[in-house]
């Protein structure tokens, strides 16, 4: 079941910590909570994938985890000063992080999608993790790809993505600790994890 605004609001203020969705810092709830989602804001840190470790020839037959280790990344931090954006160059792919820290209860999973307004100017936003599993706790990661012919300025604090919540039916007592682990299924829809 996809949670609507009413259910999201209930979960955000739930008295039981095992049922509550924690999102913090929640800078402007009125603006950020939509009809079926919550807008997430862009943080100040970015990572640019520069290529792969030149000492070893990349073998694309290896696992994604291994490739991730081999990737040479450049970390960039921009000031929270509104006059100093981070420019994403045409065709570039960067990793960005949310300002918000999210903690999900054990009966909810979440998905992230880009906001329409960004898509219309050529910035594709996707969640690198795909599914955010129940009991997840941490900052969210976005993959940002600039498909427009111009460099796009990204200001920390802008609402960059939205998060949707699905209720799950627990089919076991195992808690999910990382992506794909655990036993849960979406009540409606076709996602299983």
């Amino acid at each position: 079941m996809l949670l609507n605004k009413k259910h999201i609001m209930e979960r955000l203020v739930h008295a039981d910590p095992d049922k509550k969705i924690f999102i913090t810092p929640f800078i402007n709830p009125e603006e950020q909570v939509g009809s079926v989602s919550i807008d997430l804001r862009l943080g100040t840190d970015f990572e640019i994938v520069k290529g792969f470790d030149s000492s070893s020839k990349p073998d694309f037959n290896v696992s994604a985890e291994k490739l991730e280790q081999m990737a040479v990344k450049k970390k960039v931090t921009v000031s929270a000063d509104p006059a100093e954006p981070f420019y994403i160059q045409p065709g570039a792919f960067v990793i960005g992080y949310s300002i918000e820290h999210l903690k999900l209860p054990s009966d909810l999973l979440a998905k992230i999608a880009g906001r329409n307004s960004w898509g219309k100017i050529g910035l594709f936003v996707n969640s690198t993790a795909g599914l955010i599993t129940p009991d997840f706790s941490g900052t969210l990661t976005f993959g940002l790809k600039n498909m427009s012919p111009e460099a796009l300025p990204l200001y920390p604090g802008v609402r960059i993505a939205q998060i949707y919540f699905h209720q799950t039916r627990n089919s076991g007592s195992v808690k999910t600790e990382d992506a794909g682990a655990g036993t849960c299924e979406v009540i409606s829809g076709n996602i299983e994890c």
Binding site: P25, I27, G43, A80, D81, P82, H101, T139, G157
Partner: peptide, 17 residues
């Protein structure tokens, strides 16, 4: 560490908005 950093960003954005 994250809390200190994000609280400062929060403050800036709050003023901005």
């Amino acid at each position: 560490l994250n809390s200190v950093e994000k609280s400062r960003i929060f403050e800036i954005l709050m003023k901005k908005e």
